[in-house]
Computed example of a mutant assay.
Amino acid sequence: MTTMTTPKASPVFSVCVYCGSKPGKQPEFAQIAVQVGTWIGAHGGQLVYGGGRNGLMGLMAEATLAAGGTVVGIIPTALVEKEWAHHGCTELHVVDTMHERKRLMADKADAFLALPGGIGTFEELFEVWTWRQLGYHDKPVGILNSLGYYDGLMAFIGQVVQEGFMGEWQTELVTLGTEPEALLQTLVQKAGFSPRAKVELI
């Protein structure tokens, strides 16, 4: 099932963002989510996300809409029944399973970005990273390491490489950044859009 609000002009680019359904303990995390949504909306982009109204997810969606962007939420029926859905999305797709949700999110995105979040965020990040490694897509993947949130994870990934379970080339499939706007612009550029015509001059 899909519900839609008033149609907008076609977005310039589409970024799938994974992030927490909770706000986190540090207020900076909420500010980061708002920055990401505002940048996407202000540059004529589309946010693709898990369709929730809580935590960083809800803040990011609201910021994207407020800045004039398009928001595509994709959420399984079970979470709608728990009243977690954001019904103000430009498009809200209600699907049967988590697998269908993630596949549709990937189909609708030009790039992927992970913000701070919990186990669901980690699972989605690793899955889309794995898909790129296996050649199922060639879309850029980014990790926003604001406040050093992902320092521990990246240290562990380094250990995995040292132990021979990953190669350096696999780590290079992900772009790490600490500044939301700079990382978003990098991902959009890597997705094949001209930064002057498509982003900077909007």
Results as ranks from 00 to 15, higher is better:
73 G>E: 04
97 T>W: 01
174 V>S: 10
102 K>E: 05
76 P>L: 03
170 Q>N: 05
133 Q>R: 14
176 L>N: 03
129 W>T: 03
178 T>Y: 13
180 P>Y: 03
128 V>D: 00
119 I>F: 14
188 V>P: 00
123 E>A: 11
86 H>S: 11
183 L>V: 10
167 G>C: 04
118 G>S: 02
180 P>R: 05
184 L>P: 03
119 I>V: 13
182 A>G: 01
142 G>Y: 04
170 Q>P: 00
110 D>L: 02
150 Y>E: 07
144 L>E: 02
79 L>I: 00
157 I>T: 05
127 E>H: 08
156 F>K: 12
108 K>F: 06
156 F>D: 09
163 E>G: 12
116 P>N: 10
74 I>G: 10
177 G>T: 12
170 Q>S: 05
104 L>W: 10
174 V>T: 09
112 F>T: 02
90 T>M: 11
95 V>L: 09
77 T>H: 15
140 P>Y: 09
182 A>M: 04
158 G>M: 02
187 L>E: 08
158 G>D: 09
111 A>H: 13
169 W>V: 11
90 T>R: 13
129 W>R: 10
73 G>R: 09
73 G>D: 12
142 G>S: 05
91 E>P: 05
162 Q>A: 15
127 E>G: 07
173 L>Q: 15
101 R>E: 10
90 T>K: 14
113 L>T: 02
93 H>Q: 09
124 E>W: 00
184 L>M: 04
121 T>A: 05
181 E>M: 06
167 G>W: 11
100 E>S: 13
111 A>F: 13
103 R>Q: 15
152 G>F: 12
103 R>W: 07
183 L>E: 13
92 L>T: 03
81 E>P: 09
149 Y>C: 01
101 R>L: 10
131 W>R: 01
155 A>C: 06
138 D>M: 09
129 W>N: 08
156 F>C: 11
69 G>Q: 02
122 F>W: 09
141 V>A: 07
109 A>G: 08
132 R>T: 06
153 L>H: 04
140 P>N: 08
149 Y>N: 04
134 L>E: 03
102 K>D: 03
78 A>R: 15
164 G>M: 14
136 Y>S: 08
175 T>W: 13
123 E>T: 08
149 Y>A: 01
76 P>H: 06
130 T>F: 11
175 T>L: 11
83 E>H: 15
77 T>P: 06
184 L>A: 02
188 V>H: 00
101 R>A: 07
159 Q>R: 14
146 S>Q: 08
147 L>G: 04
139 K>F: 01
170 Q>D: 04
154 M>S: 06
